[in-house]
Design a protein around this nucleic acid. Structure first.
Length: 111
DNA sequence: CTACTGACCGCGA
DNA sequence: GTCGCGGCCAGTA
């Protein structure tokens, strides 16, 4: 297993439940800034049996990457909604559920 | 080696 | 809001 892939999987595993992140954010967190496409490849090639919150990874604009109507698309929507994420028309409002929001809140609540 | 593909992204028109 | 375009670069043929 490629070391970069392991770092990518680790970054994805670190996304808190009820929140989402973009491919680019995951790449950056994995120490691979600008390599969003590699994250896509890593997800596509996720080993069978590996537990991973893959459904919390979205395009930077909050849309689901998988084709509309596909099996994966429906499952991703279902799993996100199951943990309280608002999915409408295949899109999640990043402003409300993205990681940046978490960081901001953390900073604001620093008193 | 070249060519093409892609679970991407930011920018400008 | 939408479309291209160029940048990105690992896989695959």
């Amino acid at each position: 297993m490629d070391k970069r892939y392991r770092r990518i999987y680790a970054a994805i595993a670190a996304i808190p439940a009820g929140r989402v992140a973009s491919y680019g954010q995951i790449a950056a967190r994995a120490g691979l800034p600008g390599r969003a496409r590699l994250v896509g490849a890593a997800l596509r090639d996720t080993p069978d049996g590996m537990e991973l919150p893959w459904f919390r990874v979205l395009h930077s604009d909050g849309t689901i990457a998988l084709p509309r109507g596909s099996r994966g698309f429906r499952e991703q929507s279902r799993r996100l909604r199951a943990e309280g994420v608002d999915v409408r028309d295949g899109r999640v409002p990043m402003q409300a559920f993205g990681l940046a929001h978490d960081l901001d809140r953390a900073l604001w609540s620093l008193d």
